[in-house]
Design a binder for these strands. Structure first.
Lengths: 114, 114
DNA sequence: AGGATACTTACCCATATGGCTAACCTTGAT
DNA sequence: ATCAAGGTTAGCCATATGGGTAAGTATCCT
């Protein structure tokens, strides 16, 4: 299992997320996966390599066809990190609230400062 | 709310995930957040800007101190995408299984082909 | 007023990323 | 044997990213 850095990075690209989505419908060949995307095959292959490098997908070549499939456990690692954070901050929402309400009244031109 | 591209990208960096984790303990100043990280302040500020650009955090400047806080809803967007995908592929795990088992027996030297 | 504190801006740099084309290698079909 | 199909490799290019330094601004403290 790769680290969160590479998993989140892999998911930060629209093309790669689309591939993941496509694969939720079952395994598919490189050609099939590439078709919806308007880019050269070698370019698309690099995306698949990014997905495979962090174990979001597995691939296997049979004859001249390489078939790709999801490795759901990897995405779960990312999901787990997110839900853990949410679990932590939900217990602190009171603090966030007090932070927001404490500042708002005395700072009307706040928008100009971001 | 920013798009998934920028949210996942923001989370793909170890420093930025650490900031998110730190902020689950409540709002904090830039200085406080920067301390654990061995890098120049301007460099660290860029990380905060990435987090703020995709709305994972909110910041507010009071006097000379800028305070940062989480915006949990944004992270939930990422979590939601992941859990949606998982929901989809869990209904297809049978297909994944048949894919894996169909190939394994007749391809013992598979490891060499990745 | 003057110095310290807490950012903030401007700018530089090396590497990574996403895109391309051209050419190559297997495998399957005729 | 030859040709088409499906990848794959190699190499080029522009931009983005993560890191740094130097100098500036705005507050707060004394």
């Amino acid at each position: 299992m790769a680290n969160l850095d590479s998993i989140f990075h892999a998911l930060s690209d629209c093309t790669r997320r689309a591939v993941v989505q496509q694969l939720t419908g079952g395994p598919a060949s490189v050609k099939t996966l590439a078709e919806p995307h308007a880019m050269a095959l070698p370019t698309f292959l690099k995306h698949l390599q990014v997905l495979e490098a962090c174990d979001l997908i597995v691939t296997r070549k049979t004859g001249r066809v390489r078939t790709c499939a999801l490795q759901p456990e990897t995405a779960q690692a990312a999901e787990h990190w997110l839900s853990t954070q949410r679990g932590l901050w939900e217990r602190r929402l009171d603090r966030l609230d007090s932070f927001l309400t404490a500042q708002t009244p005395k700072d009307p031109d706040d928008a100009a400062q971001s």
